[in-house]
Amino acid sequence: MEDELSFSDIYGGRLALQRRYYSPSCREFCLSCPRLSLRSLTSVTCTVWLAAYGLFTLCENSMILSAAIFITLLGLLGYLHFVKIDQETLLIIDSLGIQLTSSYASGKESTTFIEMGKVKDVIINEAIYMQKVIYYLCILLNDPADPHGISQVVPVFQDCLTAVTLPWRASLWCSSCLLLDGDHGICTD
């Protein structure tokens, strides 16, 4: 079973959320961020080149132009490989744990797995981010030393910052699947 929903991120862009139910104890979220738009690519390239030409007319050294080519190319490669995330996946398997996967635009993937025993709770938190105040979904990890303590807070979907509805739904989803202890006050979706 699979359905798709559309959300907006904090910058007003569109995000597509796919939900896949494999079995009652295994579900997957797949959040696709907006693609790299031609407009932003063109505008960044143009800015770099205009600056390079400006410098070139001042000091008349053609090294600047070749440097600009390299900067643009390396910048684009680095951006696609390390910064730009196309898709984030949250795979939840009851009794096993939560797997977070981010796939970058270049095809690189990075995966984190959190065992069920370490997951304390999945909550929505509120924070000040740049000049904004946002909601985000995060996973609390148990502290092995202190049974009531929290050792770490793992933010989820941090590269596609989303509007409130998404963390909300995702939190419902995770907790209904993970059967976390019931004092969430969250209804099943």
């Binding site: 938190n125 509120e126 909601y135 509805t165 739904r169 419902l172 006050g185 209804c187 979706d189």
Partner: peptide, 21 residues
């Protein structure tokens, strides 16, 4: 502190619509 759902208030509602109403 993190916000953990709306308690009994939103029972039976779709939370997203409840928010945007």
């Amino acid at each position: 502190m993190a916000y953990q759902g709306g308690g009994g208030h939103d029972l039976g509602h779709d939370p997203s619509t409840a928010l945007y109403h």
